[in-house]
């Protein structure tokens, strides 16, 4: 339902990445953020009726440190949701809690619920490994494995014991899905370390979609890339919404405005007693709305660069 309307309005998806690169180039030429947000016409319901994922009263602690307070967020199917906010407000922390990568951080503790397709992934008996095959993750710094390009993509399906008829097909499909196939099809057996940073990041995306997740989490996926590589990854994200739901953390507000359907703005509030800065969700809305008519003063200050 939501899916159908979204796809038809994605005017940018089919065009070739080369021309898109020019249009999307990040930098000073972009006007006000609300203009950018309006550039992409997507008809989205104001209220999410059937979110694929939802957090409720999410509180996250590192040891005694209360990092994130009472976050309620819903992620729409086949939408891109951007998490923005000043450094240290807990964006990465929230993101990692969505596929239980926080479990790997010693001392990290999650309270509240994260419902994925109606099931709380923190409920007793849920296998975090299984969660991660449904909710994949792309990291800030491209982190290909020291293996061949082919083996990088095949790694996920192999370790999760996915039933694969033809691994070559699957690898090709994933690389095509990440708009990387044409660049690497002749050197699949070569080391992934020979690729450029932007190609490596798309390889990491290919690697993630090879395991056929439903949701892809991206933590500042373009922060290590140049504007052209960034534009290609942004195009890719828009294409990926045909099959995937994406949650992206970004410090680049133009990027949030360009690619996301909804934006959540976080900030950190110092605790009166301890002085610790606890992150909280300030405002969550359609990206267009959040950038044109923010309803909270803090949001407005932040997006207009007056954040102090």
């Amino acid at each position: 339902m939501v899916k159908g309307t979204n796809m038809s309005t994605h005017s940018v998806t089919a065009s070739s990445p080369g021309t898109e690169a020019n249009r999307h180039t990040a930098g000073g030429s972009v006007g006000s953020l609300s203009d950018v947000a309006q550039e992409i016409e997507r008809h989205l319901p104001d209220k999410l009726m059937d979110p694929i994922m939802e957090t409720s009263l999410l509180n996250i602690y590192y040891g005694d440190f209360h990092a994130v307070h009472d976050v309620n967020l819903a992620f729409g199917r086949n939408e891109i949701t951007a998490l923005i906010g000043p450094s240290g407000c807990g964006k990465s922390t929230v993101l990692r809690s969505l596929n239980r990568m926080n479990d790997l951080v010693p001392g990290a503790r999650v309270e509240g619920a994260v419902n994925y397709q109606g099931q709380n992934i923190y409920a007793r008996g849920v296998d975090p490994i299984a969660v991660r095959t449904h909710v994949g993750m792309v990291f800030q710094k491209p982190n290909p494995f020291p293996k061949s390009i082919y083996d990088n993509v095949a790694y996920g399906p192999r370790v999760t014991g996915m039933k694969v008829d033809d691994m070559d097909d699957l690898v090709e499909g994933a690389l095509r899905g990440a708009a990387l196939w044409d660049e690497v099809k002749d050197k699949l057996k070569q080391s992934a370390y020979g690729l450029s940073g932007g190609q490596q990041q798309r390889l990491c995306i290919a690697r993630t979609i090879a395991t056929k997740p439903n949701v892809i989490l991206m933590d500042e996926p373009c922060s290590a890339l140049d504007p052209i590589a960034t534009a290609r990854v942004e195009d890719l994200m828009l294409q990926l919404t045909q099959d995937y739901t994406i949650v992206i953390v970004t410090h680049n507000m133009q990027q949030a405005a360009r690619v996301s359907d909804r934006t959540a703005f976080f900030t950190a509030r110092p605790d009166e007693t301890t002085g610790n800065r606890t992150g909280l969700l300030v405002e969550y809305n359609l990206t267009k709305q959040l950038f044109s008519q923010p309803s909270d003063q803090r949001t407005e200050d932040y997006i207009s660069g007056r954040f102090g």
Binding site: I129, P146, Y155, V159, T160, T211
Partner: peptide, 27 residues
């Protein structure tokens, strides 16, 4: 062996054991 390699492996649904055996140890 960088933390990112382990995280990358775990995020793809590998177990800790698989991550150690297939990524950390060979590296």
């Amino acid at each position: 062996v960088p933390r990112e390699i382990r995280d990358g492996s775990m995020a793809l649904g590998a177990t800790r054991w698989q991550t150690t055996w297939k990524q950390t140890l060979p590296s």
